[in-house]
Amino acid sequence: MQPAASAPAPSSAALAAARDALAVHGPVFRQEPIEWGSEEPLAPALAAYYRQVGPGWVEVDTLGLPFLFFPLERLWDEQAGFRWSRRTGARLVDWNDDWTVVALQGGDPFIHEASTGAVLMAGEEGWEDRLDEPEPVFRDLAEMTLALCAVGRVWAGADDPFTEDWRLTEEVLGQVVGALEGVLGSHGRAVAVARRLGYLAAR
């Protein structure tokens, strides 16, 4: 099955902002489509993202496991376990040709959908326990990067994020939602995304 036509890339200004935000957490550098390790065509939005944002191996600390970005030369290999079985190499039937895993939090993928440009995630139950198809969460790759970096910025600045009974403080939860709202432009979206990212008490 051939993938659908690709959506346009985010604007250069949005990608530049995403690059600046991600550079705080790790290496970023221009990467060209020739570094893509597959004969399948690289979606134009992904090509633009790696040229203008260019994550290397970047970890953004957050609650639980960090958000992990990887370089273009490793992007195809990181599809293992999602596009195909790690054990047998067989193609997994519930994976769409239109999808590419672009970042991870533990075993939970952030999935770029070439035809729409959106980034999809599973629900709050996580990838392995999902009951439904992944849903659009971020409008595009730039918004995803800015949102994850905004959460990472809050987490890095939280000296003592937990109460005595190991619950997240209301202050940290509020800051995470506020940082996401600054990127996403909506309190409702910010709360929903925070909960998908593991901040389950966000409101």
Rank of each mutant, 00 (worst) to 15 (best):
T100N: 10
G152L: 09
G126H: 03
V183W: 05
G157Y: 07
E143S: 06
N96F: 00
W36T: 00
A103C: 12
G26P: 08
L184A: 02
I111V: 14
R51M: 07
G178T: 10
V172K: 14
P3H: 09
W84E: 13
L65W: 02
G56S: 12
Q52P: 00
A45V: 01
P8G: 11
V177K: 09
V102H: 05
R86C: 10
F162V: 06
W76T: 05
D140L: 01
A48G: 02
G126S: 05
G126C: 06
Q175K: 15
E73L: 00
D132G: 08
W155M: 11
L197F: 12
T145A: 01
G182S: 14
A179W: 07
T116G: 00
D97M: 12
P71E: 11
R51V: 02
L15I: 09
H112Y: 09
M121I: 10
V60A: 08
P109L: 06
W57Y: 13
A179N: 07
R86K: 15
G157R: 15
E32Y: 10
F29R: 15
R51K: 10
F70G: 08
I111C: 03
S115R: 12
P161Q: 11
H25N: 13
R19L: 07
G123A: 14
Y199S: 10
A202F: 11
I34Q: 12
L141Y: 02
L148N: 04
D159A: 15
W76H: 11
P10S: 02
S11R: 11
L146P: 02
F67H: 14
F138Q: 04
D132Q: 13
T163L: 01
E32A: 08
H187K: 12
L120Y: 14
G126P: 07
L75M: 14
A80R: 14
L146R: 15
E143K: 04
P27T: 01
E124Y: 03
T163F: 00
W155I: 08
T116V: 02
G174P: 01
P134V: 11
E39K: 08
L65Q: 09
S38F: 03
Y49H: 15
A190L: 07
E78K: 10
W155S: 10
Q175V: 05
D160P: 00
G188E: 15
G152Q: 09
L184T: 08
L22A: 08
V102A: 02
A5K: 09
G174C: 15
V53F: 13
E164I: 09
L180W: 06
D140N: 14
L148H: 07
L146V: 05
L200Q: 05
D97T: 13
A122E: 09
E125Q: 14
P44H: 11
A118D: 00
L180G: 10
G152N: 07
W166V: 04
T169V: 07
W36Y: 15
R51S: 06
D94V: 02
A4D: 12
R153L: 05
M121Y: 01
S186C: 08
N96G: 00
L92C: 05
A150T: 05
L75Y: 00
S38E: 03
Q52M: 11
R91D: 10
E124P: 01
R87M: 13
E40L: 13
